[in-house]
Design a protein around this nucleic acid. Structure first.
Length: 1032
RNA sequence: GGGCCAUUAGCUCAGUUGGUUAGAGCACGGUUCUGAUAAGACCGGGGUCUGUGGUUCGAGUCCACAAUGGCCCA
């Protein structure tokens, strides 16, 4: 006997019981062990940081990872799932800074790096219990007992080894990186921090004149005379550039123009001005007249005189990209270059370039070999011997302007309001500042990065050539050092005497150095302990000290394919077996994060991509489409949802409602709706089945198993609808497999939802009678075995998506009758479609019967005749002969659905004269293809039959109201004044008795204790009473 | 400022290679069916498929531009 299934399900209790079962029986571990002989399917867990509480937006990626891994496991693959935790980086440091009320690097160092990092170490796991609990309750199967942790010495050592490999290949170098820098805090800010601090502010808006060098014009005139009119040589010519940061002008070393734009040459009394034609009107040109128009191209290659020759003010001029000091030149000139970023919407179309003060400027400085001039120190003060030297840059602005005005180099000067980033901690304006940083030369393998990407299957596919492909096309070297404390220390030691640098690949590598000191046990490879390790320089014998930086935490996570195994120091074969990954999955913001760091490290080391398939998920936002954030207070804690609605409801809702890559709107209301629509419908179908199966098979477990597992059915015992639902089932299995093979759980779950709908609302509804009829014949057995097969197949099909519900179905429907079955549904194989059972024609035929039934009901509704009331005839008009034949075969179904006695199908060309399109006794309904006409004529016989059905309905409701059991036998009493009703009782007594399980219909007063209701039928009062006759 | 994605009913979403009258669910109003169902069926109101051009015999679908929103990067 099946365990009784209540129509009202307590999902929370059910899921908790199942969690306990999985844990006690170690089902997850078994699901991996039993697949050990199978092909390996490699999954990499992108490590979350556990320094914050998990939100419902963290559930999505965990869910998708789980679904895919469970699916491939059931397909026979061996899918180990090692957990991982990301423990380093700025988020942890900021958390600790806040809790210790530290606001600058100076304060951290004063507090002590050792104590600071101790706090970081514990903060990194602040919410790990919550993460683990959420993971388990969600049903995300992951080996959390053996996670990789980025702060472990072994993990760090693997990172060191990787850096050393790159170092040996000449791919690590020290260069300059332009970063947003807070001059007060003395530190760079991450882009995330910068985003916190944008504010409107008022700044100077200055149009500055740069004098073109006459000799470069002459040279140009000689070889390409036509480009600039030679008459211009009579007066000085100025290029007009715009800036809001005059203090950057001493760092200027180029002007950029748009090659394809037109530039106007304006003539004034004293001079000529050149600026973009499009912007002349906007800026104003009083006192000047246009004398010529030239292409930007013609300006490229000209040279101009700097506003401030750095050599005159004691400032160095460095060459890019080598950063070597250039010789002192008194008659210095800088070039005009072409650049595609020059805006023609604001400014002058001539852009002032200062490589020391802007990322774009620096990049173009590197690629064009410009000069690098840095006239400002890290505290934001102007250096050198300028008139404004020693001032803070913002304070220097007016003095720079005065200086230029006195030399007649300012065309116009005003003030504007615009947004500018400020330090979110101290509100000091940020300076974009080129600072030394360590780089990995990823550009050296750019082509490999791109060709490797072509081997990766992206889901959705447009990321491949879009967001990720573009990112690779625009690859720049990876600045992977951070001037911070809590991270993998950069394993480069530098000689304090001769600047010789050495990269050390391991702890052993350190111990083998000369005169090592500071390598003390217990070993902690973090700062500040690692900073104390020194050794002798092999070049000069000087003292080798570690450089102060730590490594970008994205490097940590990108190193996980190796570092999770402590490769190459241990586990060589495990690493090799588990590389590359078959599957990874994270949200879309990881394209430039983890997806890139994995791909880059793998390409740099092994010249091959790191993963074959990647799902790139959209973000989870609230019900109104707004991003979840602590400040808005709209973050939904997963725990609240899990403990109220259960994991399956949350899982199904997230999978089915929105395609993975789209933005997921999270609404509890929609979650509840999805639950009602799908999980409860499925549950009730399951409950229906067990209810009747228990009635029919009682305690005969053997017989039940026999009947359901190996039904003795001969050809023809299965009805057309049985064959249809089996055909739909197999089609479903095929579609779900196909969707999952292409990493699309949303399509898979939507298909399943569609199947459960037709299973419940067409198959079961149309076949109910076969389950509750008296005799146990082959027809009944066919119905049972068909529905059983659907439910049992569904349990396996559903198990990657809703593992709890699937387990419940499996345990009760399969395990109970088949003790030899596997212990859990998650140890079974994924169903395989039986193609031979798929009958596309039958599927569409039944679909047609459904459609015609709908139209029939619509035709009845038009004239207000209840479906309960039988009618004489329905005439249907279809277009194709095949449709006609299909409907004739399925006529019995349609006849019952629309309750008519006679059913005629015509093809369009047969309709003449026969189709009752305008007859008053018919009601019509149609859609684009089909017409249905229903006879509305009511004969006394039809009316009487309708009344009998109404009486049955009343009696059934009474049985329910009286809380009788489905199988209870009764006696029915009735009293009525209407002779018609008495006739109905006589004529349809047999039918009424059969439907209501009545032994007798007695025309008399009911005995005491009978359940009584009065109803009006056919305008007559009828008193009905029922009494149970079987003992309880 | 650049890139990617989205925009279809009040809300959440489908809509295959361009082809009859653009579909579901929720919500609302009405009717109905039912001894599995918190469900189902039928009718109704509710759509200039974001806008403007273009390609085509024909565009929700293809192309261009624009607007709005989201994300990533400046």
């Amino acid at each position: 006997m099946f365990r009784e299934v209540s129509a009202r399900v307590n999902v929370i209790q059910l899921e908790e019981d199942i969690l306990r079962f999985w844990k006690e029986q170690r089902i997850f571990e078994k699901s991996i062990e039993i697949r050990k002989g199978g092909p390996l399917y490699v999954f990499y867990e992108g490590p979350p940081g556990a320094n914050g509480s998990p939100g419902v937006h963290h559930v999505l990626a965990r869910l998708y990872k789980d679904v895919v891994c469970r699916y491939w496991t059931m397909k026979g693959y061996h899918v180990p799932r090692k957990a991982g935790w990301d423990t380093h980086g700025l988020p942890v440091e900021l958390d600790v800074e806040n809790s210790l009320a530290l606001t600058s690097k100076a304060q951290i160092e004063e507090y002590g790096v050792a104590r600071f990092n101790d706090h970081c170490r514990s903060t990194a796991f602040k919410y790990i219990k919550e993460w683990e609990a959420m993971t388990e309750r969600l049903g995300y199967w992951l080996d959390m007992e053996h996670p990789y942790v980025t702060l472990d010495n072994s993990y760090i050592e693997s990172c060191w080894w990787i850096v050393k490999q790159l170092w040996d290949k000449g791919l690590v170098y020290q260069g300059y990186k332009v970063t947003p820098h807070c001059p007060r805090c003395g530190t760079s800010l991450s882009s995330h921090e910068v985003a916190l601090g944008y504010e409107d502010t008022e700044d100077p808006s200055v149009y500055v004149k740069f004098r073109l060098d006459a000799s470069s014009l002459e040279r140009r005139a000689e070889c390409e005379s036509s480009l600039l009119p030679s008459s211009l040589l009579s007066k000085p010519i100025f290029l007009l550039a715009w800036t809001t940061t005059p203090w950057t002008l001493p760092g200027n070393s180029a002007l950029a123009v748009a090659s394809h734009a037109e530039y106007s040459v304006l003539e004034g009394d004293q001079d000529y001005l050149i600026l973009a034609t499009k912007l002349v009107d906007k800026i104003g040109s009083e006192g000047y007249t246009e004398t010529a128009i030239v292409q930007g191209e013609a300006l490229v290659g000209l040279e101009y005189e700097p506003l401030f020759n750095p050599h005159s003010f004691g400032v160095q001029r460095l060459d890019l990209p080598t950063l070597c000091a250039e010789e002192t030149i008194d008659s210095l000139t800088y070039p005009v270059i072409g650049a595609d970023f020059v805006s023609l919407d604001e400014g002058t179309g001539v852009v002032h370039i200062a490589p020391a003060f802007g990322e774009v400027d620096f990049d173009i400085g590197m690629s064009s070999g410009l000069d690098f001039v840095q006239p400002v120190d890290l505290e934001g003060r102007v250096i050198g011997t300028y008139r404004f030297a020693g001032e803070f840059v913002k304070d220097a602005d007016p003095h720079v302007l005065e200086d230029l005005k006195s030399r007649g180099l300012v065309y116009r000067s005003e003030r504007i309001t615009h947004t500018y980033p400020f330090c979110w901690r101290c509100e000091t304006p940020l300076l974009y500042y080129a600072k030394p940083a360590w780089y990995i030369r990823t550009t050296a393998v750019k082509e490999k990065l791109i060709s490797g990407n072509s081997e990766i299957d992206w889901h959705p596919d447009y990321i491949k050539h879009g967001r990720f492909g573009d990112w690779l096309e625009n690859n720049v070297d990876w600045a992977f050092s951070r001037e911070r404390y809590w991270g993998t220390p950069l394993n480069i030691w530098r000689c304090s005497s001769c600047d010789n640098c050495e990269c050390v690949d391991s702890v052993q590598g350190l111990s083998l150095q000369l005169n090592v000191s500071g390598l003390t046990m217990p070993l902690d490879l973090h700062r500040p302990y690692v900073d104390e390790i020194t050794f002798a320089c092999r070049e000069c014998g000087g003292k080798m000290q570690r450089v102060p930086e730590v490594i970008d935490c994205w490097f940590d996570s990108g190193a996980m394919p190796l570092a999770q195994w402590h490769y190459p120091f241990e586990n060589e074969d495990r690493f090799k077996q588990n590389f590359p990954a078959d599957f990874i999955c994270e949200a879309v913001d990881q394209t430039r994060g983890w997806f890139y760091s994995l791909h880059a490290i793998s390409t740099l080391l092994f010249s091959r991509p790191c993963f074959r398939n990647v799902i790139c998920l959209g973000h989870v936002v609230d019900a109104r489409g707004e991003k979840m954030s602590k400040s808005k207070g709209n973050v939904i804690a997963p725990w609240a949802v899990l403990s109220k609605h259960g994991a399956d409801a949350l899982r199904w809702y997230m999978l089915v409602s929105t395609a993975g890559e789209d933005t997921h709107r999270f609404s509890t209301k929609m979650l509840e709706e999805t639950t009602r629509k799908f999980l409860l419908t499925l549950w009730n179908t399951y409950s229906f089945f067990t209810l009747y199966a228990n009635i029919d098979f009682g305690n005969e477990v053997d017989k039940m198993g026999q009947c359901l597992l190996n039904p003795h059915l001969s050809e023809g015992d299965r009805t057309e609808l049985d064959q249809w639902i089996i055909s739909e089932l197999n089609r479903l299995v095929g579609e779900v497999s196909k969707s999952m093979d292409s990493y699309n759980p949303t399509v898979a779950t939507r298909r399943i939802e569609g199947f459960v709908d037709i299973l419940s609302n067409w198959y079961v509804r149309r076949n109910r009678r076969r389950f509750w009829k008296g005799e146990n014949d082959a027809d009944k057995l066919a119905a049972y075995s068909t529905l059983y097969q659907c439910l049992v197949t569904l349990s396996r099909l559903l198990s990657p998506f809703v593992p709890f519900m699937a387990e419940e179905l499996y345990q009760n429907l399969t395990r109970s009758v088949n003790p030899g079955a596997r212990e859990s549904v998650h140890l079974t194989d994924f169903p395989v479609a039986d193609e031979a059972k798929i009958d596309d024609r039958l599927n569409s035929d039944v679909g047609l019967a459904m459609r015609i039934s709908s139209l029939g009901r619509a035709a009845r509704a038009k004239v207000g005749i209840k479906v309960r009331q039988p009618l004489g005839k329905a005439v249907v008009m279809v277009e194709a002969e095949a449709e006609k034949r299909a409907l004739e075969r399925l006529a019995a179904e349609v006849i019952e659905e629309i309750n008519v006695k006679q059913f005629v199908v015509l093809r369009a060309e047969e309709k003449r004269g026969e189709f009752p399109s305008n007859m008053p006794d018919y009601s019509l309904a149609n859609d684009a293809r089909y017409w249905v006409a229903i006879s509305t004529e009511l004969t006394p016989e039809l009316i009487a039959e309708g009344v009998s059905r109404e009486l049955v309905r009343h009696l059934q409701n009474m049985r329910r109201n009286a809380r009788f059991d489905i199988t209870d036998q009764i006696v029915t009493y009735y009293q009525t004044e209407g002779p018609l009703l008495r006739q109905v009782m006589d004529a349809f007594g047999g039918y009424i008795k059969q439907e209501t399980l009545s032994h007798e219909l007695i025309d008399s007063l009911p005995p005491d204790g009978a359940y009584v209701e009065k109803h009006r039928v056919l305008n007559a009062e009828v008193s009905l009473a029922i009494r149970r006759t079987n003992p309880r």
